[in-house]
Write a protein that binds this DNA or RNA. Sequence first.
DNA 1: ATTTTTGCAAATCATTTGCATATAT
DNA 2: ATATATGCAAATGATTTGCAAAAAT
Lengths: 150, 150
Amino acid sequence: MGDPDHILTALDRAGHRLTDARRLIAGLIAERNGHFTVADLVAACRSGHTGIGRATVFRTVDLFESLDVIERLDLPSGEHAYVECERAHHHHVVCSRCGRTEGIEDAGLRTLVGKVSRQTGFRIDDHRLEMFGLCPACLALQPVPSSATA
Amino acid sequence: MGDPDHILTALDRAGHRLTDARRLIAGLIAERNGHFTVADLVAACRSGHTGIGRATVFRTVDLFESLDVIERLDLPSGEHAYVECERAHHHHVVCSRCGRTEGIEDAGLRTLVGKVSRQTGFRIDDHRLEMFGLCPACLALQPVPSSATA
DNA sequence: ATTTTTGCAAATCATTTGCATATAT
DNA sequence: ATATATGCAAATGATTTGCAAAAAT
């Protein structure tokens, strides 16, 4: 579970206004522990009889992303999901079952980027690494998860 | 420039029918050297007065993807693009200017996946790594590309 | 002959935009 | 007061689906 203040502080620091919609959406985001889609937030806003409209949710998500307090994940399905993240930034392991994510440290990425750059002659400005699988909790739910005994 | 036969052979081997639409789309894909979107292909089909419809293009792209002869890229913009790829599979450097891509070898990824798995307790089933930047040719077009002299 | 594929139009889902109103500063 | 943000409805774009006709085996 994240911290809505982290988001609100970032908003404020960047000179954006603190509105009800933004506070509410920050709260919704903070109270999930997994990734979420814009559609999820729109549904939550609708069911919570808040008067917040679809367009505002999209605009707010874009804004949060531009402040680096959330980050977009491209799920294997092609869906766009988002996760709250510390400014530090970059790369997640994603649980395909419950959607929980965990940030991962550089762990050798920098070296790898350098190597690829040297090998291909590309100047590399940006990169994205995502890993998908099952988190410990979900693993525990499924005994013998891969090569099951028939 | 790719090889349409690579695609057609894979189709055949998997027991799919060789139709005009598939041959034509395989040809369109082979003659690009960068990535392409479904919309690109639809436009090419339309302008080439082929009678191929939008739905067929989508279905064909899905089919090719399922055969691992093309692979989906998630561009930083959020667009879905595709690249032709050898079955070997996995990970590309993408030129943000011309769209050219180059496949990259494991280059230490396997180790990194193992490390992350150990650190987080996740079982990792799948991963994706994409790097974005400028290819050598596009670099040559823009002298002093990063910190330009004002 | 039979099964798979196609094309089309319509349906669905995701995302953006215009604009008048409301709100934070 | 003033600039920014919102809500709504409508526009746009991406993708899917139903179904009868066409093509591949």
